[in-house]
Design a protein around this nucleic acid. Structure first.
Length: 325
DNA sequence: AACCATAACGGGG
DNA sequence: GCCCCGTTATGGT
């Protein structure tokens, strides 16, 4: 056998080049299960070129008012940002019960979620405290049933840039992780009262492409007896770095979904920025995007989301102390 | 907003 | 052009 072959066999595999250069700074808060790294500087630099493409106005159908950026985040960094966020954020698999045909039914939300932000009646101070938006004084305990979480630097940077480019204002960031084609979200509108009448929502895709379906809500029969033309269903295949800005009448009149898909699909992260106007929005979002269960974190070795435990986190990369007899 | 049963679709042979 | 069957769409709960 050749000498080189043995060397190849025994030499430990070269450590994989990291997909991103981790920052030394972190966003911390008492409400976080663990600190979240700042966005790597290389990504932050490239984000200054966003939007990478001019937005395409989509208003060809009735009540449709959106802009499609293909992409918004430069393709050169979109997959890297996907890897970064999947690794550095904590996620939840929310469970709750609904009444189905009178009987309580368990719902396991078919995706991982996490949420940051607080509605417009409050704001975070520099040190992470919550104060009333008007008076600047500490909020009464009891204003929220949940514990609102400030938006970490890595997601706040993209929020600020998007606000600047679109002229919209956001105070919430929802993140969804679709692990594979079985993870999905069924048809719904983001038309909750606490978002106001004509909400603007910026929705980013990172990682695997997924179909994004839109259909008009049922149109009530016209009182004059004229026939109405149903708007066409729309299918967008959202790729890594793409962004759709939904605004105006869109949420009031259209439903959207990311349906289950057969076959092998990689993971996809969806980030949405939106503005909640009143307190009810804050508790609602934390109920359905954080829930009451524990956090999950991406395990790169096993390639899956794993239940996070404070103990294991503390001993990460550290040899456990020997026990004396 | 999800599950599930069932219908409709559509590419391969 | 038709059948097969996996995938996708739809409607009731």
């Amino acid at each position: 056998m050749k000498r080189g072959a043995l060397d190849t066999f025994f030499k430990p595999v070269a450590p994989k080049k990291p997909k991103y250069e981790a920052s030394t700074q972190q966003s911390s808060h008492a409400s976080y299960p663990f600190a979240v790294s700042y966005l790597p500087e290389a990504f932050a630099e490239q984000l200054q070129f966003a939007p990478a493409e001019e937005g395409r106005v989509m208003n060809q159908e009735r009540d449709l008012d959106m802009v499609y950026y293909q992409p918004y985040i430069p393709r050169s960094i979109a997959d890297g940002m996907f890897e970064f966020l999947r690794q550095e954020l904590f996620f939840y698999r929310v469970q709750y019960t609904i009444k189905r045909g009178g009987a309580p039914t368990a719902i396991n939300t078919p995706r991982f979620t996490t949420v940051f932000g607080v509605d417009a009646t409050s704001r975070f101070t520099e040190d992470g405290g919550l104060v009333d938006a008007k008076t600047g004084k500490g909020i009464e305990k009891g204003r929220y049933k949940c514990t609102p979480r400030p938006i970490p630097q890595c997601l706040g940077l993209l929020k600020d840039l998007t606000e600047g480019a679109t002229g919209c204002e956001f105070n919430f960031c929802l993140v969804n992780y679709y692990a594979d084609g079985k993870d999905s979200i069924s048809y719904h509108s983001d038309d909750e009262r606490f978002l106001g009448e004509l909400p603007a929502i910026a929705s980013f895709t990172l990682g695997a492409k997924r179909d994004f379906l839109m259909k008009h809500k049922p149109i009530p029969p016209s009182t004059t007896g004229e026939s109405v033309v149903e708007p066409k269903q729309i299918k967008l295949t959202l790729g890594s770095g793409d962004m759709v800005l939904m605004k105006g009448e869109t949420q009031r009149n259209w439903l959207h979904s990311v349906p289950k898909r057969a076959g092998e699909q990689g993971g996809r992260i969806n980030i949405t920025y939106r503005q909640a106007l009143v307190r009810g929005g804050t508790d609602n979002y934390y109920t359905y995007n954080v829930g009451t269960g524990g956090a999950f974190q991406w395990n790169a070795r096993e390639k899956l989301m794993r239940a996070w435990s404070a103990d294991e986190d503390a001993s990460e990369g550290v040899t456990p102390p020997k026990q004396d007899k």
